[in-house]
Amino acid sequence: MSTTIIETKSALDTALRPAAEAGKQSSLEVTDYDNRQTVGAITVDHPKMVCRNVNVYYGAKQALRNVGIDIGANQVIAFIGPSGCGKSTFLRCLNRMNDTIVTCRVTGQLKLDDEDIYAPVIDVVQLRARIGMVFQKPNPFPKSIYENVAYGPRIHGMVNTKAELDELVRASLERAGLLKEVDKRMNDPGTSLSGGQQQRLCIARAIAVNPEVILMDEPCSALDPIATAKIEELIDELRENYTIVIVTHSMQQAARVSQRTAYFHLGDLIEVGETDQIFTNPKHKLTEDYITGRFG
């Protein structure tokens, strides 16, 4: 249903095209609207994760078609696209959170450091310890701030002594830029913090198990601009140690924090490229329409 509506809309855009085209002397080979092949370089020099031919189905409905993309090590890659385009679905494939949805089926190849993450030998517990996740709505456990951060290390048995755990908790909070604010009230409930602080607590919780990749699903959509700015700054710092995949609705945010950007449209990966290039020089008409605000 929604598919038809958006397609009609893009057909309308096609009709309007000449007028827009005239306004800009484009030297690019802007590909045709109907082309659903991914445009741009999907590979990178040092990939952390490699995904090829990923198809995702919810029951009979196909949510993602033939997505292939590399996720570079120690880079921030942003997934953008209109609502329902499959960017969150794809993100959730990366740490197999989709496993919890009974009707969901994933085919294709997803590799983390040359290891197929959907292989039968891979345990999701181990996988999710290596690929952390931060959700759209801050979701600290209804426990103390300390317990929130200590949870991951505890269940995975990463530390042996209380002192070690203390050190790890403090370091994680420090990295998440939250230590100064919560140092005096480690035993307060995590839910007593402000929205932005809660989200940084969730980031601290995720990095406490020292993951290799951090997935962020619209981490700032529930936050005010100041809290958003802090998180964005934090993402930039975290890039040094982690590979970060961020799904965002805000193109400004994608432009600010990411090195690479992938544009999804109705279950297809339309275009991948360096963030600068995507925002200044998109190669696919759909991408251009989206980033110039013509729809989405």
């Binding site: 740490n95 959170m97 919890t100 999701v124 517990v125 181990q126 996988l127 999710r128 310890a129 952390g132 996740m133 959700f135 709505k137 979701n139 600290p140 456990f141 209804p142 949870y151 991951g152 269940i155 995975h156 969730c202 919780r205 995720a206 198990v209």
Partner: peptide, 26 residues
């Protein structure tokens, strides 16, 4: 709320840990 379950699973908790540590107490 499902967000608590997701948070626990996202941390790499097994299903039983998710239930035992978070869902059941709530």
């Amino acid at each position: 709320p499902p967000s608590i379950r997701e948070a626990a699973l996202g941390m790499g908790a097994s299903k039983l840990q998710m239930v035992g540590h978070h869902v059941l107490p709530l």
